[in-house]
Design a protein around this nucleic acid. Structure first.
Lengths: 119, 119
DNA sequence: TTACTATGCTACACTTAGTGTAGGTCAACC
DNA sequence: GGTTGACCTACACTAAGTGTAGCATAGTAA
């Protein structure tokens, strides 16, 4: 069993983030020690790692909650889950394009500065 | 003179966004009509266009405020302004790299699904 | 004249994904 | 006995607006 601090360090979340995920229903309310401190099993740590994996893809917390429910519902939801990941991927591609376009704006601005524009 | 709705449409901001910028001090409080409606001159529209240009580069509103102050302070602040734009550009490049890495995560996840993993 | 619609106003709540802070508890160490 | 460290809860705050409620006003249609 791990304390929240140990869990946070092992998984790479902040303590606050873990409590936040519990509050949001992404995690079952953790077991407590006699001192009312949260205690995590290895299995719960794996669940946190899973959440971290999804978060790193840029998925929103609410969507991860849905996704987690689907995972627990079994393989019947697999096609749906694949679609979600594909949509997420598209969103990421769109984001990248947008940022690239902003980059072009910035470079134009810099060029204008180099050419003597002064506002 | 333009109403806030006309200004919003001309510049491409929402009405709410313009009021928000005023509240944040990015804009001087607009002149008012007899009916207490905001009125904008062409010069203020140009200022809004300028703000839009900076926002599109991904610059934060608070930073735009600083930047606007520098512009008004004259050419002495030019090197500082160039540095800000360059930093902004670097931040954008970092963002893009991060998103690309998230993309790799997603693609790995999809591959695992295609290979029969089911969680 | 009355009713409706459009546009504007203010002030407030809400969003995301957490972070930061205040105030309190508890055990361990010196 | 005092201090440190880790934990607890609850609340406020962040960015950049958006959405809503409740109001005023002007122009138009019946």
């Amino acid at each position: 069993m791990y304390t929240i601090g140990q869990a946070a360090q092992k998984v790479g979340f902040s303590i606050g983030a873990i409590r936040f995920y519990e509050r949001k229903g992404l995690l079952e309310p953790a077991a407590r020690s006699e001192q009312n401190n949260r205690l995590y099993t290895d299995s719960e740590l794996n669940w946190l790692v899973f959440i971290k994996c999804l978060r790193e893809t840029g998925m929103r917390v609410e969507d991860i909650k849905q996704f987690a429910n689907m995972v627990m519902a079994g393989t019947a939801t697999l096609p749906e889950r694949i679609k979600i990941i594909q949509d997420q991927k598209q969103k990421l591609l769109d984001d990248i394009e947008e940022k690239k376009s902003q980059l072009v704006h910035l470079e134009r601005k810099l060029q204008r500065y180099y050419n003597g524009e002064n506002y």
